[in-house]
Design a binder for these strands. Structure first.
Length: 349
DNA sequence: AATCCGGGGGA
DNA sequence: TCCCCAGGATT
């Protein structure tokens, strides 16, 4: 039994009865595909039913106003899908004689229709031999074949499309595509797939190698944290105060200056009222200078630093906070992040 | 190649 | 919380 044979057999036994599967009307299929982009079937289904009832053909859709479309789209998200559908419907009226195309080459030219949707509409409506690759297909292929190329990398997209093309039952493209998607949605789910009753158990790479939870691999978009540090350059004659950073944060074990951190940009005023500030300093404290904001880029963080120069402090805080009082001439004896050492170097010279 | 666009559901 | 969902357009 080939992969496709097993797949189709599974599909015929397990498929859901969904309204857009009971038609070959490329307009209705288009409607369903756009609604289902990045949207679960259960969430999109009621929208499909309302849209297909109110706009049973592309002409009625094209004659709707954008307000009407967006009102019906309300709550579905990604609203540009609705706006683009209206544009496309008008293009169909004007350039395609009001006949919704079935050919991949035509579909791919339309706004809102990318590779996946063009392959879906063409194969579902006319059995054109184009393989769909959506989130489900990425998952099925990556697990079954043990492909660890990230699915959201350029190379990964090419690689998975090529495998999907290879796998496609070209004589039965529409059903094959539906089956791949349905299998990914119902059986080979992202979390806790039903491997125990899977017809591919013995041939699935991920199942055999216990990699189900590792595949597919997706590049995480690194989220950058923004941090606002106010460093205090506490001038005590020929000495200054520094501190060693703990091991739970950036620059672990290096030395920097006493600091107060905020999660967002703040006025100097806010800093002066911070409890640490009022503990550390006193009435005799004079702010001699405050540097402009210095931006420092790390891989996962953007540091915005401000250096506040002061000349008086409460002596007890040195011991209490575990700070160090060192001679300015000894600064270079201590490992410091570049942000700090550069600033001190410029300041002291 | 990265970022934006969204509401909803599951772990 | 984080991840993912029948992705595509834009920069």
């Amino acid at each position: 039994m080939s992969f496709s044979n097993v797949l189709i057999s599974w599909y015929r036994n397990n498929k859901r009865d969904l309204p857009w599967r009971n038609t070959q009307d490329s307009y209705l299929i288009w409607l369903s595909e756009i609604i289902l982009q990045q949207t679960r079937v259960e969430q999109g289904l009621p929208y499909y039913l309302r849209f297909s009832e109110k706009y049973p053909n592309v002409e009625s859709f094209a004659n709707a106003s954008e307000d009407q479309i967006l009102r019906m789209w309300q709550g579905l998200g990604y609203y540009s899908r609705g706006r683009n559908m209206l544009k496309t419907a008008k293009v169909i009226q004007r350039d395609f004689n009001g006949i919704f195309p079935q050919a991949y080459a035509d579909l791919i030219t339309l706004i809102g229709i990318g590779e996946y949707t063009a392959a879906a509409i063409s194969s579902f409506s006319s059995n054109e031999a184009k393989a769909v690759v959506d989130g489900n297909v990425y998952r099925v292929i990556s697990r079954y074949f043990g492909i660890s190329t990230p699915i959201n990398s350029t190379l990964g997209k090419k690689e998975f499309q090529a495998i999907a093309d290879e796998l496609l039952d070209t004589k039965n493209a529409g059903e094959h595509n539906q089956a791949m998607i349905e299998f990914g949605a119902l059986q080979c789910k992202p979390k806790s797939p039903n491997c125990s009753i899977c017809p591919f158990q013995s041939s699935c790479f991920a199942y055999q190698h216990h990699r189900i939870n590792d595949l597919p691999i997706k590049l995480k978009k690194l989220k950058i944290r923004e941090r606002y540090f106010n460093f205090f350059l506490i001038d005590d004659g020929d000495e200054i105060l520094i501190k060693r950073r703990d091991n739970t944060d950036i620059w672990a074990g290096l030395h920097d200056l006493p600091a107060i951190e905020f999660p967002e940009r703040t006025e100097l005023e806010v800093l002066l009222n911070h409890p640490d500030f009022t503990n550390w300093f006193n009435d005799k404290t004079v702010i001699q200078k405050s540097s402009k904001e210095i931006k420092h880029i790390l891989t996962h963080q953007r540091i915005y630093a401000r250096f506040v120069h002061l000349n008086n402090y409460n002596p007890s805080i040195i011991e209490k906070n575990g700070w160090l009082k060192i001679k300015k001439t000894q600064i270079s004896d201590y490992g410091m992040p570049k942000l700090i050492s550069e600033y001190l170097k410029n300041f002291l010279n």
